[in-house]
Amino acid sequence: MKPSNVLLLPGWQNSDPDHWQSRWEALRGYHRVEQHDWMRPLRGDWSARLEETVADADGPVVLVAHSLGCILTAWWAAHTRHAAKVRGALLVAPGDVERPDLAEVIPGWAPIARQSLPFPAVLVGSRNDPYCSYERVQGLGADWGARFIDYGERGHINAESGLGDWVEGRGWLMQLATGA
């Protein structure tokens, strides 16, 4: 799979330079799906941008989503005509946008699409993620039909988690990309 067909889907406020998604982009040439407004995300706008990007891809793609990017993936998958182009999705630390505190700062993203995804997925969750309880992330994984990976106590699985280039996560990505 060409690096440009690995689509990075950051969450709210984008992924900073030390985030594993940004490191993968710099080191591997993966393609970040740029959103028009990272600070005030609109589900319709973000979904339309993902739809365009997948439609324009010159072959199969793998989605690599973090936080709100996971919620975007589930919503987009429920509405797209291009799901067949997705070889798989690595979903990492979804944010629970149905929680009142998050719904207030990121309005318009509830309800979370809970249908089984039409492509293979791996969901990596943390036991102490401040944006999604462990029980909730397990439930999302089950609803989405994703293979669930308990990643221990790693916070929001972002730059603050000290993952560097996150070799383990890249291994799961490669399994999805190759259909293993």
Rank of each mutant, 00 (worst) to 15 (best):
T80S: 15
R136E: 07
R127A: 03
A78E: 14
D150C: 07
V86P: 05
D56C: 13
C70I: 10
L63W: 03
L91F: 11
Y134F: 15
G171A: 15
P130Y: 12
L91W: 11
F119N: 03
R40H: 13
L140A: 03
A48N: 15
H79F: 06
R49W: 02
A57H: 14
W172T: 04
R127H: 00
E52V: 01
D58P: 06
R28M: 12
H156D: 08
G88A: 09
A55C: 03
S116H: 05
Y134L: 01
A84E: 14
T178P: 01
A110V: 04
A78H: 14
S47Q: 13
R99L: 15
P10D: 04
E34Q: 10
W166V: 05
R40E: 05
G162E: 09
G29F: 09
V6R: 11
R81I: 06
G59F: 06
I149T: 08
R32I: 09
E104M: 11
L90M: 03
C70N: 10
R136M: 09
A57D: 12
N14A: 14
G108C: 11
Q115C: 01
G152D: 10
D16C: 06
L50E: 06
G125W: 09
S116N: 00
G169K: 04
K2W: 00
A84H: 15
I149L: 15
L8C: 06
A159N: 04
P130K: 11
S15R: 05
L42P: 00
F119G: 02
G169Q: 05
R114P: 01
P3T: 13
E104A: 15
A65H: 13
E168H: 09
P100N: 12
G29Y: 07
F119W: 08
G95M: 11
A84K: 14
A159Q: 12
L163W: 09
L163S: 07
S4C: 11
P94R: 15
G44Y: 03
P10L: 07
S15K: 07
V122L: 07
E51P: 07
D165G: 14
V86I: 15
W109I: 05
E135K: 00
K2T: 02
F148P: 01
G152C: 08
A180N: 07
E135M: 00
I71S: 10
W172R: 08
A121I: 02
H31C: 08
A48E: 15
A74T: 14
Y151D: 14
A89G: 07
Q175Y: 06
P111C: 06
L42C: 08
Y30A: 10
E51D: 15
C70D: 09
A65D: 09
I106K: 06
A121F: 02
R43I: 13
C70F: 13
E98H: 00
D143E: 06
A113K: 01
Q175S: 14
P118T: 08
V86Q: 11
E98D: 00
E104V: 09
V6T: 05
D37K: 02
R81W: 08
K85S: 10
S133H: 09
Y134K: 02
D45C: 09
V64D: 02
Q13S: 02
E52G: 00
S22W: 02
T53I: 04
